[in-house]
Amino acid sequence: MYEGAVQDLIDELGRLPGVGPKSAQRIAFHLLQADSDDVDRLVTALTEVKARVRFCTVCGNVAEAELCRICADPRRDPSLICVVEEPKDVVAIERTREFKGRYHVLGGAISPMDGVGPNDLRIKELMTRLLGGTVEEVIIATDPNLEGEATAAYLSKYLRELHVRVTRLASGLPVGGDLEYADEVTLGRAFEGRRLIDA
């Protein structure tokens, strides 16, 4: 146990995800020895992020205004919506530069064991967006694990009733890997989603 402010800092850092008591102690002492300017920059960044960042009222992505950068961009195709679990998934898809539509962030995946059901996600907001009639295709890009798969199954069940095209991101073999090391589930999905090679 340290005195006053140092222990308070260690306790607060220890509450961050993935930071244990030892890591918290190491970061605290790093900050104690760092230049005041560096610490000030960190303090400003933390204050700014809480003061300025909020969630886009349309898609649920992180934004600094009412609409996020993507929803506010008129060049993005409004007939395509890609449904993702978290804002960080938006960044991952944006890095591909393949998708020109808009996003919808659910805020997680359905997990009954963790007490997360359909009403805890932004599914109602997605349905409301689709009622406008401009959306032609919904691409479900939830994580390729079983919770993501079940969430996709739930969404497709209700989205089909709204007469929009519902697609799911392909699952299969990672580029750069060897076929012999693929697990049965991934290889099975790769077979299911095989495509015709254009001549």
């Binding site: 064991m113 390729p144 694990n145 079983l146 990672p174 890997g177 090391y181 697990d183 049965e184 589930v185 991934t186």
Partner: peptide
Amino acid sequence: TKSRFGARLEP
């Protein structure tokens, strides 16, 4: 995504 047994250790 490149894990060799991630898909096998799902509920």
